[in-house]
Simulated assay, not measured.
Amino acid sequence: MDQIDRKILSLMHENARMPISEMSRTISMSQPAVTERIRKLEDQGIITGYRAQLSGAKLGKHTTAFVMFKTDNCKDFVSFIEASAEVVDLYRISGEYNYLMKVVTENTESLASFLDACSAHGFSTTLIVLATPFEDKSLISNEV
């Protein structure tokens, strides 16, 4: 992966819907060359997919929390979480807790209900998000 690939990835991270024509002008390459580089990045598994970023607030989801969870039955817990619409990310972690999950709910009352349902699988510590200065920061340096 060279600097041109890094620039393409940076542009795509900022706006995955950027037209190839605009991207090719920005990095001074032909459209077929940019298209081929993107295809190779996909084939190499560097680009793993494309998705829309959704506004939780516009969808009526105003509360975000990170929940550290400890369970003795990982398989049942993961099955429960997979079926839970409130959990948008789940990470297996080291340390005192087994899992870290990002939970998005309508409000603190619905968060409390979700946590009550989780308690059948173990215990948790919850951190409610007060503000999000940034999110989904690019893995590619801004210096490209």
Rank of each mutant, 00 (worst) to 15 (best):
T105C: 14
E106R: 13
T126L: 10
S138Y: 03
Q3F: 05
T126P: 12
L115N: 08
K70A: 11
L130Q: 11
M1K: 00
K61F: 13
Q44A: 08
A16C: 07
K70Y: 13
P133T: 01
P32C: 03
D116E: 14
G56V: 07
R37W: 01
F77I: 05
Q3V: 08
M29G: 00
Q3Y: 04
E82M: 11
Q44V: 00
A83I: 01
L90V: 14
N15P: 01
S119G: 06
K61N: 02
N107W: 03
A52Y: 12
M1A: 01
D116W: 11
G56A: 05
A131S: 14
S55K: 07
V144W: 01
T35Q: 15
S110N: 13
Y91D: 02
S113G: 04
K40I: 04
R6C: 00
M68I: 01
A131V: 09
E42F: 02
E82P: 06
E96F: 15
S24K: 07
A120C: 02
T108R: 15
S55R: 09
S79W: 10
L59D: 02
P32N: 06
D43W: 00
L139Q: 08
E135G: 01
T35I: 14
K75I: 10
G45M: 06
N98Q: 14
L41P: 02
V104G: 01
Q31E: 15
D2G: 13
K75C: 12
S84W: 07
E14G: 07
T108H: 15
E135Q: 10
F66V: 09
T125M: 14
A33D: 00
E36Q: 12
A33W: 03
D5Q: 05
A33I: 00
G95D: 12
H121D: 03
S84C: 11
L115A: 05
D5A: 08
S30D: 09
S141A: 10
K102G: 01
S141K: 08
I20E: 04
I8K: 02
Q31I: 03
S21N: 11
A131N: 13
M68N: 10
L127S: 15
D43T: 03
S24Q: 07
S141M: 03
D5W: 02
D116T: 15
R6A: 03
T63D: 02
Q53E: 13
I4N: 06
F77C: 13
S24R: 03
V144S: 02
E109N: 15
F80W: 11
E96D: 14
F66C: 06
